[in-house]
Write a protein that binds this DNA or RNA. Sequence first.
RNA 1: GUGGGUGUAGCUCAGUUGGUUAGAGCGUCUGACUGUGGCUCAGAAGGUCGCGGGUUCGAAACCCGUCACUCACCCCA
Length: 422
Amino acid sequence: MASQWEPLLGTADIAEPEVREWVFVENQARALFSRYGYGELRTPVIERTDVFVRGLGDETDVVKKEMYTFEDRGGRSVTLRPEGTAGVMRAIANQGLAEGEERRVFYMGPMFRGERPAAGRRRQFHQVGVEAVGRAAPLLDAECIAMLLHFLEEVGIADGELLVNSRGTADDRPAAAAALKEHFTPHLAGLCEDCRRRFETNVWRMLDCKVEGCQEAIRGAPAIMDLLGAESKAYFAAVCACLDGLKVPYRVDPRLVRGLDYYEHTVFEVVHSGLGAQNALAGGGRYALFLPGSDRPVRGVGFAAGLERLLLARASLGQAAAGTPGMDVFLVSLGERALAASQLLAAELRHAGLRVLAETTGRSMKAQMRAADRVRARYTLIRGDNELDGGTVLCKAMADGVQTPVAAGEVAAWLLARLMSG
RNA sequence: GUGGGUGUAGCUCAGUUGGUUAGAGCGUCUGACUGUGGCUCAGAAGGUCGCGGGUUCGAAACCCGUCACUCACCCCA
């Protein structure tokens, strides 16, 4: 339906009953991450632009062509966050982190990227992510990965495939990049336009190209692992050993290259078959991130999972959305007096903890009964002049149609006794 | 940014080679002896056929443009 009230391209309204799926996944995330010692951190969705430019790398696709960047009223360049890590690091740096101190945080919320939307990809999308900042150890990387899989399990996705690889350190990269360039140079003429561009801007990415004609050159390329220094190789081997120790199944994908510059050492991704073309469910890795005005990187390990994609995966597995729960009680009122009196009774019942809907417009009894049925009320309380004069309320159990007159003062207790017992 | 698909009622969609007052299902509302839901039956409301132009005696349908949505590429979550 194309109406002028459609939300902006790539954004969406999330309403009942779908929103229950969101809340479910968010709650699972909160509960699970806290079991691993992570606390929630909420950072602004908007930051100074250089937080991201410096953090993600100015040659990355995200920074070059996908950010929602504009000037605020003071002429400062600001950006809607395209990912969560940079802002989280900024916040942690702002709070101060002692040498050797470890900080574990998780976050969830909207991110913004100005791309063409497709299945599982929106301009405003949502991520839940974690960051363990301040220490570097293979065991920590492995635990982080294991937690991601644990989380996926908790939300009903047990069949994702884990891919891992290493990007080495900043020290390894110049030599490795040179080796890659050397390999690709003779093939350049036969490669796609994008690859020729990547040759200049980001050789690593060429390994990731899906164009048919480029595959042969890519297959012949040296594996990243072979280009890394001894220290990096050892680190990666240790991470793999830890994963083995944790009995986490994984596949080493020598071509896994993630899109942001801040990664070093371990990178990983979980892919899922139920997502269409955008098959990455979650991704992350170890990173060294630079903040504006600082030459010392903040190091950590973390991941982000796409909420929309988690929900797609759940849907593909037939994980049913929890239905909207019905009301406990619907108050049917016949006549002005009853209408007024029922508002008071409704308030009393709600204070008692019940889910209550009361007639407000005085329709026919049939219409009100239909309304009660539509909201799946378990009890309908009927009051007209007869009941008001007698000081009672007619309580009807909708399941079997049995009607019981109850003294007005005892209705709440009467209902509670029945509703609580199930 | 580049390609493909689709825009008809609140929702999901029909609409035959252009031909009278544009339909169905679901939903909503009303009614079927006085104050009783679901099932059934009867009825009602609800549509600038995305928008603009063109062809034609006549356009929801054909042509052009435009906008929107959607899928895919790129890249990523």
